[in-house]
């Protein structure tokens, strides 16, 4: 069991629940099940599963920043919206760029904006100031979109066509929900795999070192500002790519994707699932979708249910669902090493 303590003395469990082989097996199983989903489930549910995949990637991008580098962006929807509006507009106005190229440009745009913000802000800003700055900039982005007729102003950018991908040997037509879902599944899996590889690489370990103790990391010769910027850029780029995948799936992008409630979605997903685990944001996104799905006919109760769940999670299971499972497992197997269910404590 590895536990780590940072400047604020917070302890984050990074003990894997299961061995990597089991996780790998599970992933293949989940991927296989999802690949069959278009033939098995109701199209409405399929649509929600697609949204969940996108939300999972979005939340992973946020947790790269928060869980692994210790920076909290409260305006992450801004990056998502950059990607969504970019691919949405490109497809809507049939700009002749291949769809994969659009996604790459979208990610590049997200990373570029993150870079600009980071250059100005990251060196000096952390904590609540970074939180408020990102909220403010996202709000400005939303206002700017609401003033641009080409992006649909308050009504949103609608009627976005789904793309066709021209590969070398054959054309892939993603117009049908089934085809686009399979593409979405592959894309989200690839992004997730890339992020997994990143956080387990040397760079990922540097991120974690900074998160635990920025001063000590600097002392060891790590260029803290540069790595923070890198993390911010990757996070922004991945969020924008998630947005880029979102636009053709819903076929409409509106200001609802830019407001600060949208920015809280990846945060909620991450905390619900568990900050301390790579898979936490994914579990959280799934759990959130399930809560929403089960309460969709309890009209007028959604605020109470969602709000109440959040407060409960923070008070009772601050390490999220994965942490909770961990605690339960420890309890069942009488392995009372258990810091699994505690908060990140200040001294």
């Amino acid at each position: 069991m590895v536990s780590m303590t940072d400047t604020q003395g917070s302890v984050i469990e990074r003990t894997p629940m299961m061995s990597r082989r089991v996780v790998g097996f599970l992933m293949v199983l989940v991927f296989g099940a999802l690949a069959l989903a278009p033939d098995l489930v109701n199209p409405g549910l399929l649509f929600l599963i697609g949204l969940t995949l996108i939300q999972a990637v979005f939340a992973l991008s946020w947790n790269l920043l928060f869980g692994y580098t210790g920076l909290a962006s409260f305006g992450h929807a801004g990056f998502f919206a950059i990607g969504a509006y970019f691919t949405g507009a490109m497809l809507r106005y049939t700009v002749p760029i291949p769809f994969l190229g659009m996604l790459v440009i979208a990610a590049g745009l997200g990373a570029l904006v993150a870079c600009l913000i980071g250059l100005v802000a990251l060196r000096r800003l952390a904590g609540i100031f970074l939180a408020v700055l990102t909220v403010a900039l996202t709000e400005v982005l939303g206002r700017l979109i609401s003033y641009s007729p080409a992006l649909g102003e308050h009504d949103g950018l609608g009627n976005i066509p789904r793309p066709k991908i021209g590969l070398v040997l054959w054309d892939l037509d993603l117009t049908s929900s089934r085809a686009y879902f399979l593409f979405l599944l592959c894309a989200c899996s690839l992004i997730t795999a890339a992020l997994w590889w990143l956080v387990h690489s040397r760079t990922g370990r540097v991120f974690q070192a900074i998160r635990q103790d920025a001063d000590r990391a600097a002392f060891l010769g790590i260029n803290v500002a540069r790595y923070r910027l890198l993390s911010f850029m990757i996070s922004g780029g991945v969020a924008a790519m998630a947005g880029g995948l979102f636009a053709p799936w819903t076929r409409i992008v509106t200001l609802d994707e830019v407001n600060w409630l949208a920015s809280t979605q990846p945060i909620l997903n991450t905390l619900l699932g568990g900050v301390g685990s790579f898979w936490g944001p994914v579990v959280g996104a799934v759990a959130f979708t399930l809560i929403n799905y089960w309460t969709r006919t309890f009209v007028g109760l959604s605020e109470i249910v969602i709000g109440g769940t959040l407060v409960l999670v923070i008070i009772a299971a601050p390490t999220g669902i994965i942490g909770l499972l961990h605690t339960i497992r420890n309890w069942v197997f009488q392995r009372t090493a258990g810091k699994g269910g505690t908060h990140e404590r200040l001294p």
């Binding site: 109701n42 199209p43 649509f47 819903t250 409409i252 509106t254 994707e257």
Partner: peptide, 13 residues
């Protein structure tokens, strides 16, 4: 709009 689209697809499904 996204929720509305989801609902329409579910109902159609």
């Amino acid at each position: 709009s996204a929720t509305s689209v989801a609902a329409a697809r579910e109902l159609a499904g």
